[in-house]
Design a protein around this nucleic acid. Sequence first.
DNA 1: AATATTTTACCGAACGTTCGGTTAATAAAA
DNA 2: TTTTATTAACCGAACGTTCGGTAAAATATT
Lengths: 187, 187
Amino acid sequence: MRPQKIEEQEMLNGFAKLFKEKGYEGTSLAELAVVTGLKKASLYHRFPKGKEEMAKAVLLSINEWVEKHVFNTLTNPSLSPEERLKNGLQSIQKLYDDGNTPCLLQAFSVQSGIEVFHQLINDSMSDWVDAFTNIGLAFDLSQSAAKEKATQVLIAIQGSLIVSRGFNNPNIFINSLTNIEAMYTQE
Amino acid sequence: MRPQKIEEQEMLNGFAKLFKEKGYEGTSLAELAVVTGLKKASLYHRFPKGKEEMAKAVLLSINEWVEKHVFNTLTNPSLSPEERLKNGLQSIQKLYDDGNTPCLLQAFSVQSGIEVFHQLINDSMSDWVDAFTNIGLAFDLSQSAAKEKATQVLIAIQGSLIVSRGFNNPNIFINSLTNIEAMYTQE
DNA sequence: AATATTTTACCGAACGTTCGGTTAATAAAA
DNA sequence: TTTTATTAACCGAACGTTCGGTAAAATATT
């Protein structure tokens, strides 16, 4: 069996960069091909269902990373709530490259018109809220208060990414992460 | 002189709907034509520089609406700070159709690659921060505290629009507006 | 060890479609 | 008649996708 020129995960990383910056419709197969070093036709050998399959694979790949590095940290029972929160936020900071990289959920929630994406976005956001609800409970909040605060956290993350990008100032995102930590430790 | 089939403002309203939902690249000239009732070629009579001019016109049109209905209200010296804030937030709620309509700045900040847009987005966001900084000063905050809070407000608006859309639940946006009011009146 | 077969990875070229944009002619009011 | 608004027809380029065939490694046969 002939060896692959590039491994799947490497392809997905390249895809992710494009999709995050340019959205689904804004990213062309020509660009997706260039970023992998393969030709357009070869992409269809790897992803027979085409562009939509590539995008879905990127979404799932990022979801896995988040599951592993963010959610697992936030809910790690062997750490104190303070440590879980701090480490989880650090992973989030890394996920968005210190505020320099847009969120794929945002990029895909605009346009694309593809229905499956809406469901994946909805599910993914639910996971975020669940993870932060868990942290809220660890800080002795009531179930409803924990969920309310978790929603505020998701809003702060998403909003600060937007505003950071608008002002071209990643510090706005970084500051928001600090504020989020304070929302739990100082209230 | 032959009369126009549709007035400019009506066209812009139709354009806005499309651009907000589908983004810049995601919206085709064919769709822009359908929504106006004109043919593609006619769009070029009205907007000789094409799609980019149409998009820019929509941005400016919305900026004008916001200037008039949101910023002027927030800074209206003949009202109390509480009333200015309340009325301004009501206009914002209307602007985003109770959380059912995405923000054009978001839709255009993804993809598009057109440099002029970045500047317009940056300028527009600056106006938002300035307006809410003004309200913060009216609530006796220091300049820096007012600006800091204004940034938080913009983040909350943008973030809650994203999350509302993700969960297909406009109430999240409505609640955020309520929280924003409380940020000034209860602190 | 050498050869033939199979399997997988890749790619050049073209597909039909849609993109944003243009041109030349028509329709309608002043 | 002049001026403006509209449009049918058209354009080159790019889109996502498909297909026939090649390149290269693994396996089976001699």
